[in-house]
Design a protein around this nucleic acid. Structure first.
Length: 534
RNA sequence: GGCGGGUUGGCGGAGAGGUUACGCAGCGGAUUGCAAAUCCGUGUAGACCGGUUCGAUUCCGGUACCCGCCUCCA
């Protein structure tokens, strides 16, 4: 059995993972508040802890791992959004959840599951757990860890002596440094809201304290306990959530279930920066995952860039890294295209991940496999960590929430693009089909256009090109194009010239072929050609 | 103001109290008619100042700068 070591925020050191129940290893990750597209910073924990999820599934078996990631779908930001754009809350949250799935799928993140079963239950919505939250709050009040004041229910931080331990703060220090105005009904300025009243225009649920809605922190506590039990193995999230969110979760849950641990191990990933600066709207370096995908940065490249840096170090997003990731993955794709993955994942790879998710070491090993010709190990390693590509080079970009026939058309488009245009992983032209206007016909037209462009590139006569239409098969059109340009004939001519040592002619032919957008390589197995990008 | 993270060679980025990290780029060479690819070789890096030590980039203290949380844009 592989020993997994992780850095636990609570004890501030590396600990061995010793699952409470090895037949059901349980992990919770705080998910998004659903009111807008996920930005790049939101994606880092998802990718990082997806790697841990994959490791756990490998070590304990996929059916022996439960991974829960919630959706916060009740929140004042959502309310504000709904009011601002005049749309129903449920519509906004549903739409945002769809986006989130599409974007995280594109990054190769596996869907959460309960004992290996991918189910909506593994991605709970806060609004489906209001009853559990109310029950938990009642428990806290009964045990004098919470009190009611002016329609609010507040958690009494002084009732939990360990409050502040997770984030390394003392209540007294925080009060001394506090700059916030304290609501008059709080007993202690650090007390936080478990339940707050709603007015007629705000979403609310009936409760013993009147119509109201939950505070943010109680949501995660209630959902984690309901789905993973009062004690579970791992609680993960961004370091920005360490305080107050996780501190408060921990306090509530420990007080509500005094005999349980809540999470045994707390994991936190460090923050993302962009070109050395904090990502913010005011600096103009704020962008979403979807923005990057639309710009042609493949999900696999984004994932690769994330994994270059250890999860507990601040990570800088730069154009240079994107270039490096793109090139590396392109090399790997070429090397692994025709080989089968190794039956067993190389032990060194697992050891690297088991040592506190050393993804940097993992990628170093992949590079070593690539250099030493261990392509089957390379392929298995790429697949294991979610960096493999299908032969279309873009399956990772497929949107799972579109109709099947449209998705197929889109996949065809990607396949054609990869075949006739260029062969560079992670690189694709902007989608010619506008979002919202996606249809089978639109993609067929785009495919036809692509083939025409490619044929023109190969020097095919316009008369022939104009006969291309969306009904012809791609194979026929390409054969026609290749015939017209007679690439094989030119290559053969050049081969004979080289045999005759007529290098002047050979070079002239190379130039002629290059003008058609074709690059030649003389290899041991003969001359091969491929299209090059302008 | 309080708490926490970071600072490694041109760029990216690890581990380890003493031995080459590694990758990319660069440079030199080999090979190839040329080109591409490939192969070999090549870097006295560790923000700054002190301390501990036989020895520190690695431990401790301080300084500077960057970032985060404390203020529900992660």
């Amino acid at each position: 059995m592989v020993e997994i070591r992780l850095t636990d925020t609570l004890t501030r050191g590396k600990v061995d993972l010793a699952p409470i129940d090895p037949t059901d290893v349980r992990m919770y990750l705080c998910g998004p508040t659903v009111y807008d597209r996920a930005h790049l910073g939101n994606a880092r924990p998802v990718v990082v802890f997806d790697v841990l999820y994959r490791l756990l599934r490998y070590v304990y078996g996929a059916d022996h791992v439960s991974y829960v990631r919630n959706f916060t779908d009740v929140d004042d930001k959502i309310n504000a959004r709904a009011a601002a754009i005049g749309r129903p809350i449920r519509e906004i949250t549903d739409e945002t959840i769809g986006w989130y799935h599409a974007d995280m799928d594109a990054l190769g993140a596996l869907r959460p599951s309960l004992r290996g079963e991918v189910t909506p239950a593994a991605e709970p919505r806060a609004t489906d757990y209001i009853a559990q939250m109310i029950a938990m709050i009642q428990e806290l009040i009964a045990d004098r860890h919470a009190y009611v004041a002016e329609g609010h229910v507040l958690f009494d931080v002084r009732s939990f002596p360990a409050y502040g331990r997770l984030s390394g703060r003392s209540v007294d220090d925080m009060i001394a440094g506090a700059r916030v105005e304290v609501a008059p009904f709080k007993r202690d300025s650090m007390d936080f809201v478990l339940w707050k009243p709603s007015d007629a225009t705000t979403p609310g649920w009936e409760s013993p304290w009147g119509r109201g809605r939950p505070g943010w922190h109680i949501e995660c506590s209630a959902m984690a306990s309901a789905l993973l039990g009062d004690s579970f193995d791992i609680h993960a999230g961004g370091i920005d959530l360490q305080f107050p969110h996780h501190e408060n979760e921990l306090a509530q849950s420990r007080c509500a279930y005094p005999d349980a641990d809540f999470a045994r191990i707390w994991l936190h990933n460090e923050m993302l920066q962009v070109e050395g600066k904090k990502m913010s709207k005011s600096l103009g370096n704020f962008f979403t995952v979807r923005d990057l995908l639309d710009q042609g940065v493949a999900g696999a490249v984004i994932r690769y860039v994330f994994l270059m840096t250890h999860y507990r170090k601040p990570m800088d997003w730069t154009a240079d890294k994107v270039r490096e990731g793109r090139r590396t993955l392109a090399d790997y794709a070429a090397q692994t295209r025709t080989v089968a993955p190794a039956d067993q994942i190389a032990p060194g790879l697992i050891e690297a991940l088991a040592d506190d998710l050393n993804t940097s070491e993992y990628l170093r090993l992949l590079k070593e496999f690539s250099k030493t010709g261990r392509y089957r190990d390379l392929k298995a390693g790429l697949e294991f960590i979610g960096l493999s590509r299908t032969d279309t080079g873009s399956a990772i970009l497929d949107e799972p929430d579109m109709p099947d026939d449209v998705r197929n058309a889109r996949r065809d488009y990607a396949r054609v693009r990869a075949a006739v245009w260029h062969d560079i992983a992670g690189d694709h032209p902007p989608d010619p089909v506008q979002p919202g206007d996606e249809s089978v016909a639109a993609y067929q037209a785009a495919i036809c256009q692509l083939v025409r462009d490619a044929a023109r590139h190969l020097g095919v006569q316009e008369r022939v090109i104009s006969s291309f239409d969306t009904d012809s098969t791609l194979t026929r059109q390409l054969a026609l194009a290749a015939d017209q340009a007679d690439i094989p004939g030119l290559i053969d001519q050049r081969r004979r010239a080289r045999q005759d040592k007529d290098y002047a002619l050979a070079d002239a032919l190379r130039v002629k072929i290059a003008e058609l957008g074709i690059e030649l390589r003389d290899t041991a197995a003969g001359t091969v050609w491929r299209g090059v990008q302008d």
